[in-house]
Amino acid sequence: MSKILVIAEHDGTKLSQATARCVTCAAQVTGAEITVAVFAAEPAAVAAQAAALAGVAHVITITAAHNAHPLAAVLAPQVVKIAAAYTHVFGASTSFGKDLMPRVAALLGVPQISDAMAVEGAYKFKRPTYAGNALVTLEAPADRILVATVRTASFEAATGGGSAPISAVSVDAVVPTHTRFVSISAQATTDRPELTSAAKVVSGGRALASKENFELIFSLAGKIGAAVGASRAAVDAGYASNELQVGQTGKIIAPELYIAVGISGAIQHLTGIKDAKTIVAINKDPEAPIFEVSDFGLVADLFQVLPEMEKALG
């Protein structure tokens, strides 16, 4: 039987939706028993949210002052201690999971499967390579712990309704002091939905030409209750902040609706939106590659289209 340990991702108060998606991936492993591990200074609130996820059998909490901030070098030796009792260790393929899980894998001396996008067997997973242009099915040996990160865009979030027992676990791992948290400057929290979990996303590219013009994207997004995304060119130029970048090296998303405005459709961008259900492209160049993947394409000037769209949406 597979015993899967899922490392919870959280900000101290709220469990990330990425963890709920990880749980769904774990639940697709036949007969899996899922445990969510919460490392925190005060884990109670996050543990309660994890316990409520359908499919979770146990929640364990590892309480320590040094777990207040997610530092891979500090968390990895603790995860390794716990991992011995499990067959799999999963984390989301987010900046948190991508930082932590390879460190865990290396300490365990096992290879890692990154960005698992489909479960083909308890030790067999599919993952994208080359910006999603080649999908590779990898099989890990069944006699060793399998460490994987889960591509969150490929799995729905586990729903609520669960009531797993929560227990505190003490871990005697030597925790290094060579890595110290200084600060985090998160974007001001807004009412806008979060990019990676939003049902709708409006993204702007280089064509917006300024930070002021980029407000047009925020405005349309506000109108339809969408999150805002951006191409790398728009982020590099300073029109949008870095955490809004969508693509191979930004965020991989799978919204119901993706509206790309003034984005050419470079492969590095497309890999971030391949799983969007409906893609709308607005671009003044009829040859732009974005039209090859769009469900609805409109060849027009965005500076005319955006105000018109807002009006048409009432």
């Binding site: 900046s95 200084v182 600060s183 985090i184 870095n242």
Partner: peptide
């Protein structure tokens, strides 16, 4: 560059 914004560590 983390998902939430910018984090500084030493």
């Amino acid at each position: 560059e983390v998902d939430a914004g910018l984090e500084t560590i030493e």
